[in-house]
């Protein structure tokens, strides 16, 4: 009896001491900044920063391996909080990006070859003669981007095309990866002019399939005051592409485009509503093209 009691007590004591020593010896020093960063981060673990979850992002930021503005869902307000925790000055926050659909050819614009009734998935519909649309470049309208969006920012519109809610979109890139046609693109939110067509066929063929296709007429190229839009070679054909570095949102291309393949730029009042005025109105050419005729 005594032996048993002593043995067990000794074992307990020995293990206790070992654990006590190990606890001291193997103590991991956690940077307190990581904890406080985790509290301000959104906690969505969306992976938009390219790191494994918010915890991974917090550690990388503290270790100076990631930029503090890499968190797309957090935006500028989070950036300021991070800067306070890190103790560095708030430098200029880089603008956030949102997904833009580079296709305008919804129902009514594009010629349909057949009616698709099957599984609602863009990858699946493309296996059936490259989709029901005569244009093989555009959106196939089965909403894979909408399904994959973790923030509910993409809804399917009345014309069958996905509509991105710029306020909900965090630029996480998931839809861009998902889209089998590769017509979703992340673009800075202040950019308003987009060529909503990636059809590289010749103008006549493109126009025969879709009324709002880019017909490579180069009118946008000739009229652009900033030399920002060009009809460039893409794949086996050509298509108009806007250089967002140069584009000033003047909207001339959108007005001049004969097929309206280039997005209508919202009137100035809408620009202001979008919060563009502060950043871009100063750069506006005052061409008045965007203003409705009064």
């Amino acid at each position: 009896m005594l032996v048993a009691v002593i043995t067990l007590a000794a074992m307990g004591g020995v293990f206790g001491i070992i654990l006590g020593i190990a606890g001291k010896k193997f103590a991991v020093e956690v940077d307190p900044r990581v904890e406080s960063l985790l509290q301000v981060l959104p906690g969505a673990n969306c992976g938009a920063c390219g790191l494994p979850g918010c915890a991974g992002f917090a550690e990388a930021v503290v270790a100076n391996e990631a930029k503090p503005n890499a968190c797309a869902p957090g935006g500028a307000s989070l950036y300021e909080k991070i800067a306070v925790i890190l103790g560095s000055d708030v430098s200029a926050y880089e603008e956030r990006s949102v997904a833009q659909l580079l296709c305008h050819g919804g129902l009514g614009h594009v010629r349909m070859l057949y009616r698709y009734e099957g599984i609602q998935d863009c990858h699946a519909v493309l296996k059936k003669f490259l989709g029901p649309k005569a244009c093989n470049y555009g959106c196939v309208q089965q909403g894979s981007c909408s399904h994959v969006c973790p923030f509910g920012a993409i809804q399917m519109g009345a014309d069958g095309l996905p509509v991105v809610d710029y306020y909900l979109c965090t630029g996480c890139n998931k839809c861009v990866v998902e889209c089998p046609q590769q017509i979703l693109k992340l673009v800075g939110i202040s950019h308003l002019a987009h060529v909503r067509c990636v059809n590289t066929q010749k103008g006549k063929e493109a126009k025969a399939n879709c009324t709002v296709a880019c017909i490579k007429c180069k009118i946008c190229e000739k009229n652009c005051p900033e030399d920002a839009v060009h009809v460039v070679a893409v794949g086996e054909g050509t298509v108009a592409v806007i250089d967002y570095e140069k584009c000033t949102n003047c909207g001339i291309c959108a007005v001049k485009c004969p097929t309206k393949a280039i997005d209508n730029i919202p009137p100035l009042s809408d620009k202001v509503m979008l919060g563009i005025k502060d950043t871009n109105a100063n750069q506006c050419l005052q061409c008045n093209v965007c203003k409705p005729a009064s």
Binding site: T7, M11, F15, I18, L19, A22, F26, V28
Partner: peptide, 21 residues
């Protein structure tokens, strides 16, 4: 039984600390 439980419990704690480090 009791000795083994003691061993296993301490071992798990110890392993956790070592792996964490």
């Amino acid at each position: 039984t009791i000795a083994f439980i003691l061993v296993i419990a301490s071992l798990v704690q110890f392993v956790e600390m070592v792996i964490k480090k």
